[in-house]
Design a protein around this nucleic acid. Structure first.
Length: 217
DNA sequence: GACCAGGCACATC
DNA sequence: GATGTGCATGGT
C-alpha cells in the first residue's frame, strides 16, 4: 500500500508539527524573501532582510528608487547579490508600476493571471511565483521545489523526470485546494527533505516509513 | 576544504 | 528539447 498524498501530509505533520511558514511580517517582506531564498539557505535570507529593515529600505517605493549597486550591498549575505538585486528591482518595479506597490490590489487578481504576470518578469520562475502567490497573497497554488520532487519520487508518486508543472498538477489534483493545506504541506516537505537523512539514520520511526516504494537516493 | 542551501536565465549543442 | 554553467554567501 502506497497511501494517498494526503496521508504523506498527515504523517509529516504528525512528526514535524506545524512549520508556521512563511516567516515575514508583511506580504511585501514575503515577496522579497521569495526572491532572496532562491537556491539559498533561509538563515542567509534573514540576514539580508534584517539589513534592508535596518536601512529602512524594506518598502516597495524605496527599493524601486534604489540603485542596484546599493541594493546589492544590503542583500549581500543572501548570496548571488548582484543578480538578486536585479531580480528584486524587476519584481518591485512591476509591483509599483502596475499595482502601486499594494499587495491588496495584487491579491484581487486570479491565480492564473498572477502566475502569468509574475512568470513574465525576468528572474521570477515558477517556484518564486507560486511562493509569492501562496505565501504573500494567500491564494491557492501548490509550491513545488527540489524537496517536493525528491520526497514524491522516493515514494513512487511521480517520476523523476517530471517537470515543475506536472508535479504541481499532480499535487493539486490529489488535494483539496486550500491555502492553509498548501502552505503547511510545502513547508513540511522542506522539513522532510532537510531532515531526511538524519531521521533515517537516527530513528526507526521515519515519518514516511509506513509508505511503500521507499528507496534511498 | 568540500559540500549544501526553500532557482533562474542564458549559452551551446 | 536537453544539458551545462554562472551566480556567491555562510553554516556544517
Amino acid at each position: 500500500m502506497r497511501g494517498e498524498l494526503i496521508d504523506i501530509y498527515e504523517a509529516l505533520l504528525g512528526h514535524f508539527g506545524r512549520q508556521g511558514w512563511w516567516p515575514g511580517e508583511s506580504g511585501f517582506e514575503m515577496m522579497v524573501g521569495a526572491v532572496l531564498t532562491q537556491n539559498t539557505n533561509w538563515g542567509n535570507v534573514e540576514k539580508a532582510v534584517a539589513n534592508l529593515k535596518k536601512a529602512g529600505c524594506l518598502s516597495p517605493a524605496v527599493i524601486d528608487r534604489m540603485g542596484p549597486k546599493e541594493l546589492a550591498e544590503l542583500i549581500r549575505p543572501a548570496g548571488y547579490f548582484n543578480i538578486k538585486a536585479k531580480r528584486l528591482k524587476n519584481l518591485v518595479g512591476w509591483f509599483c508600476q502596475e499595482y502601486q506597490g499594494s499587495t491588496e490590489l495584487l491579491a484581487g487578481l486570479s491565480v492564473a493571471r498572477l502566475r502569468e504576470e509574475l512568470l513574465s518578469i525576468n528572474g521570477i520562475g515558477p517556484e518564486t511565483a507560486d511562493s509569492i502567490i501562496l505565501y504573500a497573497l494567500a491564494k491557492p497554488t501548490f509550491v513545488v521545489d527540489t524537496y517536493t520532487c525528491r520526497v514524491l519520487v522516493r515514494h513512487g508518486f511521480i517520476e523523476a523526470e517530471c517537470g515543475y508543472e506536472e508535479v504541481k498538477d499532480f499535487c493539486e489534483s490529489h488535494l483539496p485546494a486550500e491555502v492553509a493545506l498548501y502552505n503547511e504541506f510545502h513547508a513540511l516537505l522542506v522539513a522532510a527533505g532537510k531532515n531526511h537523512c538524519k531521521v533515517r539514520a537516527q530513528c526507526l520511526h521515519c515519518p514516511l516509513e509506513q509508505f511503500d516504494h521507499y528507496t534511498e537516493t
